[in-house]
């Protein structure tokens, strides 16, 4: 499997990372190098092997249905780069 330039752009957009035209060939090279590094895994016979979901097997702890940790709107928006009253503000989202 080889990553072409169109794929680099598609992946960059999926990851929401702007890439310049100059960066694309370089990134493609790096991704391909990594993919050939991991290609070794194709040799392993994984038939019937369960993929790992939790490395320490245990039962999931559950919380009680109680309101315990509201931070308050002040704390929630305290670090926001742009805010209005207690709203976060973003460039217009078109529905």
């Amino acid at each position: 499997m080889s990553v072409d330039h169109a794929t680099v752009r598609r992946i960059a957009h999926l990851a929401r990372i702007a890439v310049t035209d100059d960066e694309v060939p370089h990134l493609a090279g790096e991704l391909n190098a990594l993919l050939s590094f991991v290609a070794e895994l194709d040799q392993v016979d994984v038939a019937g092997i369960e993929p790992m979901t939790s490395v320490i097997p245990m039962k999931m702890h559950m919380r009680a249905d109680v309101v315990t940790d509201q931070a308050g709107a002040d704390a929630i928006v305290a670090n926001a780069p742009v805010r209005e009253e207690h709203f976060f503000v973003v460039p217009k989202v078109v529905e």
Binding site: A12, A18, A80, F88, P91, K92
Partner: peptide
């Protein structure tokens, strides 16, 4: 993503702000 904390670099729309 530049919405709730940390760095934000403006963009012409939401997607470019993210990117």
């Amino acid at each position: 993503d530049g919405v709730r904390y940390g760095l934000r670099v403006p963009g012409k729309d939401i997607a470019s702000m993210y990117e």
